[in-house]
Protein backbone atom coordinates (compact mmCIF):
# COMPACT_ATOMS: atom_id res chain seq x y z
CA UNK A 1 0.00 0.00 0.00
CA UNK A 2 1.47 3.31 -0.99
CA UNK A 3 1.19 6.58 0.85
CA UNK A 4 -1.56 7.87 -1.37
CA UNK A 5 -4.14 9.12 1.01
CA UNK A 6 -7.62 10.32 0.26
CA UNK A 7 -9.05 13.30 2.05
CA UNK A 8 -12.79 13.51 2.62
CA UNK A 9 -14.19 16.87 3.68
CA UNK A 10 -17.76 16.19 4.79
CA UNK A 11 -19.80 17.31 7.76
CA UNK A 12 -22.71 14.87 7.53
CA UNK A 13 -21.74 11.72 9.50
CA UNK A 14 -24.17 9.59 7.44
CA UNK A 15 -22.53 10.76 4.25
CA UNK A 16 -19.11 10.08 5.77
CA UNK A 17 -20.09 6.52 6.62
CA UNK A 18 -21.74 5.94 3.25
CA UNK A 19 -18.77 7.37 1.38
CA UNK A 20 -16.33 5.23 3.36
CA UNK A 21 -18.52 2.24 2.63
CA UNK A 22 -18.70 3.12 -1.04
CA UNK A 23 -14.91 3.37 -1.20
CA UNK A 24 -14.56 0.05 0.54
CA UNK A 25 -17.10 -1.52 -1.83
CA UNK A 26 -15.05 -0.13 -4.69
CA UNK A 27 -12.00 -1.83 -3.26
CA UNK A 28 -10.24 1.40 -2.54
CA UNK A 29 -8.30 0.70 0.58
CA UNK A 30 -6.11 3.79 0.82
CA UNK A 31 -5.80 5.71 4.04
CA UNK A 32 -8.63 8.19 4.37
CA UNK A 33 -8.35 11.45 6.27
CA UNK A 34 -11.63 12.98 7.27
CA UNK A 35 -12.27 16.65 7.97
CA UNK A 36 -15.67 17.67 9.41
CA UNK A 37 -15.60 21.25 8.21
CA UNK A 38 -13.69 23.62 5.95
CA UNK A 39 -11.51 25.02 8.72
CA UNK A 40 -10.35 21.59 9.79
CA UNK A 41 -9.55 20.70 6.16
CA UNK A 42 -7.43 23.83 5.75
CA UNK A 43 -5.67 23.23 9.11
CA UNK A 44 -4.68 19.77 7.91
CA UNK A 45 -3.55 20.87 4.49
CA UNK A 46 -1.53 23.86 5.72
CA UNK A 47 -0.33 22.29 8.97
CA UNK A 48 -2.13 24.67 11.27
CA UNK A 49 -4.32 24.47 14.39
CA UNK A 50 -4.70 20.88 15.62
CA UNK A 51 -2.43 19.75 12.77
CA UNK A 52 0.41 22.18 13.52
CA UNK A 53 3.79 20.64 12.76
CA UNK A 54 2.36 17.99 10.43
CA UNK A 55 4.70 16.80 7.70
CA UNK A 56 3.55 18.88 4.77
CA UNK A 57 5.43 16.59 2.40
CA UNK A 58 2.48 14.23 2.76
CA UNK A 59 -0.46 15.56 0.79
CA UNK A 60 -3.64 13.75 -0.23
CA UNK A 61 -3.68 12.20 -3.68
CA UNK A 62 -7.22 13.45 -4.04
CA UNK A 63 -9.58 15.58 -1.95
CA UNK A 64 -13.30 14.79 -1.94
CA UNK A 65 -14.84 18.10 -1.02
CA UNK A 66 -18.45 18.71 -0.04
CA UNK A 67 -19.69 22.20 -0.81
CA UNK A 68 -21.97 22.96 2.09
CA UNK A 69 -19.74 22.92 5.13
CA UNK A 70 -19.78 24.55 8.57
CA UNK A 71 -17.34 27.40 9.35
CA UNK A 72 -15.64 27.70 5.98
CA UNK A 73 -17.63 26.43 3.06
CA UNK A 74 -16.44 24.27 0.24
CA UNK A 75 -15.97 26.92 -2.43
CA UNK A 76 -13.89 29.02 -0.04
CA UNK A 77 -11.72 26.00 0.79
CA UNK A 78 -11.21 25.45 -2.92
CA UNK A 79 -10.33 29.11 -3.49
CA UNK A 80 -7.71 29.06 -0.72
CA UNK A 81 -6.18 25.84 -1.97
CA UNK A 82 -5.81 27.34 -5.43
CA UNK A 83 -4.32 30.54 -4.00
CA UNK A 84 -1.46 28.72 -2.31
CA UNK A 85 1.51 27.37 -4.25
CA UNK A 86 1.74 24.27 -2.08
CA UNK A 87 -1.78 23.14 -2.80
CA UNK A 88 -2.49 24.76 -6.15
CA UNK A 89 -2.14 21.51 -8.09
CA UNK A 90 -3.92 19.15 -5.66
CA UNK A 91 -6.69 17.23 -7.43
CA UNK A 92 -10.03 18.22 -5.92
CA UNK A 93 -13.26 16.39 -6.65
CA UNK A 94 -16.31 18.32 -5.58
CA UNK A 95 -19.25 16.39 -4.24
CA UNK A 96 -22.51 18.08 -5.17
CA UNK A 97 -26.09 17.43 -4.22
CA UNK A 98 -27.94 19.05 -7.13
CA UNK A 99 -27.78 20.87 -10.38
CA UNK A 100 -28.11 24.05 -8.36
CA UNK A 101 -24.71 23.35 -6.87
CA UNK A 102 -23.26 22.46 -10.24
CA UNK A 103 -24.42 25.86 -11.48
CA UNK A 104 -22.67 27.45 -8.53
CA UNK A 105 -19.56 25.55 -9.37
CA UNK A 106 -19.52 26.72 -13.00
CA UNK A 107 -17.85 29.91 -11.87
CA UNK A 108 -15.02 27.78 -10.46
CA UNK A 109 -15.08 25.14 -13.15
CA UNK A 110 -11.42 25.45 -13.92
CA UNK A 111 -10.35 25.22 -10.32
CA UNK A 112 -12.10 21.96 -9.48
CA UNK A 113 -10.64 18.97 -11.23
CA UNK A 114 -13.93 17.13 -11.35
CA UNK A 115 -17.20 16.78 -9.57
CA UNK A 116 -19.67 14.05 -8.84
CA UNK A 117 -23.23 14.41 -7.86
CA UNK A 118 -24.15 12.45 -4.80
CA UNK A 119 -27.05 10.34 -6.08
CA UNK A 120 -29.73 9.20 -3.66
CA UNK A 121 -29.45 5.75 -5.17
CA UNK A 122 -26.60 4.27 -3.14
CA UNK A 123 -25.58 1.68 -5.68
CA UNK A 124 -25.02 4.40 -8.27
CA UNK A 125 -22.98 6.31 -5.71
CA UNK A 126 -20.82 3.31 -5.10
CA UNK A 127 -20.20 2.97 -8.81
CA UNK A 128 -19.38 6.67 -9.17
CA UNK A 129 -16.96 6.64 -6.26
CA UNK A 130 -15.31 3.48 -7.52
CA UNK A 131 -14.66 4.98 -10.94
CA UNK A 132 -13.46 8.18 -9.36
CA UNK A 133 -11.05 6.41 -7.06
CA UNK A 134 -9.71 4.33 -9.90
CA UNK A 135 -9.06 7.40 -11.94
CA UNK A 136 -7.44 9.58 -9.36
CA UNK A 137 -5.53 6.91 -7.53
CA UNK A 138 -4.43 4.68 -10.35
CA UNK A 139 -4.48 6.51 -13.65
CA UNK A 140 -3.77 10.07 -12.85
CA UNK A 141 -0.20 11.21 -12.61
CA UNK A 142 0.53 12.78 -9.26
CA UNK A 143 1.43 16.45 -9.18
CA UNK A 144 5.21 17.14 -9.18
CA UNK A 145 5.24 18.29 -5.55
CA UNK A 146 4.35 14.82 -4.30
CA UNK A 147 6.78 13.15 -6.60
CA UNK A 148 9.77 15.12 -5.34
CA UNK A 149 8.60 14.72 -1.77
Amino acid sequence: MDKRIIMLVEDNPDDVDLTLRALKKGNILNEIVIARDGAEALDYLFGAGAHAGRDLGVMPAVILLDLKLPKIEGLEVLRRLRADARTRLLPVVVLTSSREEQDLLNGYASSANSYIRKPVDFSRFVEAVRQLGMYWLLLNELPPLQRTA
Partner: peptide
Protein backbone atom coordinates in the same frame (compact mmCIF):
# COMPACT_ATOMS: atom_id res chain seq x y z
CA UNK B 1 -35.72 31.62 -3.77
CA UNK B 2 -32.36 30.53 -5.18
CA UNK B 3 -30.90 30.27 -1.72
CA UNK B 4 -33.95 28.35 -0.63
CA UNK B 5 -33.72 26.00 -3.61
CA UNK B 6 -30.07 25.43 -2.93
CA UNK B 7 -30.80 24.64 0.65
CA UNK B 8 -33.68 22.36 -0.25
CA UNK B 9 -31.66 20.51 -2.84
CA UNK B 10 -28.81 19.97 -0.45
CA UNK B 11 -30.48 19.41 2.88
CA UNK B 12 -33.57 17.54 1.75
CA UNK B 13 -31.58 15.08 -0.27
CA UNK B 14 -29.04 14.29 2.46
CA UNK B 15 -31.48 12.35 4.69
CA UNK B 16 -32.80 10.56 1.61
CA UNK B 17 -29.29 9.48 0.79
CA UNK B 18 -28.96 8.13 4.31
CA UNK B 19 -32.26 6.26 4.12
CA UNK B 20 -31.37 4.75 0.77
CA UNK B 21 -27.73 4.17 1.60
CA UNK B 22 -28.27 2.47 4.95
CA UNK B 23 -31.15 0.42 3.58
CA UNK B 24 -28.76 -0.83 0.92
CA UNK B 25 -26.08 -1.44 3.59
Amino acid sequence: LEAFSYSVSHDLRAPLRSIDGFSQA
